[in-house]
Design a protein around this nucleic acid. Structure first.
Lengths: 140, 140
DNA sequence: TGTAATTCGGATAATTTTATCCGAATTACA
DNA sequence: TGTAATTCGGATAAAATTATCCGAATTACA
């Protein structure tokens, strides 16, 4: 469904959002907080930054933050890391699949695509910060 | 969502089902019919055979068939190639994710899992053979 | 002003997935 | 009975994904 890189990205973003408000979140805190390999995670954070989903500050006491006032949903994160394929491509990999030239599952799969789209658009980072703090959900 | 191998498997099985009834379907026919690399496809067909989803006959005029009288749904094919991960594993990759110890999306993702499960269980190979013959759906 | 903490980016390595090659065995049939 | 068509399985290669390493640059702060 999602690449491993993408699952790291989602978890990292949720963690950063919930640790922010006041402070920045360092790579090491993130990697520990989501149980991911830190060097690999660093690459992913850079991708997110370049897409504008994160801001970073270099140097001692530096770290990552969700851009202030920006509201981010899961879809943006998924698209930033895995691209639009999940939503836009044929699930059977056909280049020319469309409603005029459908693959076998084209029609039935629309429902699932729509469900996924709804799910990813409706889930925004702040939805989770309370629960992370309460420890009613986990990231590792 | 599905591995490339799995998409080949699904398309191959649909093709074999629709070409069978009478005759066997050779590797070359399959690879052409679904536009896949034939040597790689051969490996996948072997996996399907070992899981009992295909039978094969060796030698000239040999080929592959869906086991007579056996009804096969997409879920069986997906599980045979990609394993049960899609349905059973946490979508964020957490080893210990459960309703007691949920990841952030655990609950909302249940809906999608259920939709996917329903979709894959309800779609069986014979559903497509008519449409393949009519050419109202395509495999490449 | 020096040092430690940190992000950044390039290079490389390991692992997994996808793909190719080839020789052996089997079978239909001319 | 010989040959062509075919499946089968092992070995290898290529490509993509995941992961590690390291040196450079920046910054806080003692």
């Amino acid at each position: 469904m999602f690449s491993k890189a993408c699952t790291y990205a989602i978890k990292a973003m949720i963690l950063i959002k919930s640790c922010n408000e006041d402070k920045k979140c360092s790579l090491q805190e993130i990697a520990k907080g989501i149980n991911s390999p830190s060097a690999f995670t660093a690459k992913i954070l850079q991708q997110l930054r370049k897409k504008g989903l994160l801001v970073s500050t270099i140097g001692a006491k530096g770290g990552f933050q969700i851009p202030p006032k920006k509201q981010i949903c899961l879809l943006e994160i998924v698209e930033a890391i895995d691209g639009k394929g999940l939503i836009e491509s044929c699930v059977l990999g056909l280049k020319k699949c469309s409603s005029l030239n459908p693959c076998p599952v084209h029609e039935k799969y629309q429902n699932i695509k729509n469900e996924m789209l709804k799910f990813m658009m409706e889930s925004s980072l702040e939805d989770y910060t309370e629960k992370i703090k309460n420890r009613t959900i986990t990231l590792k």
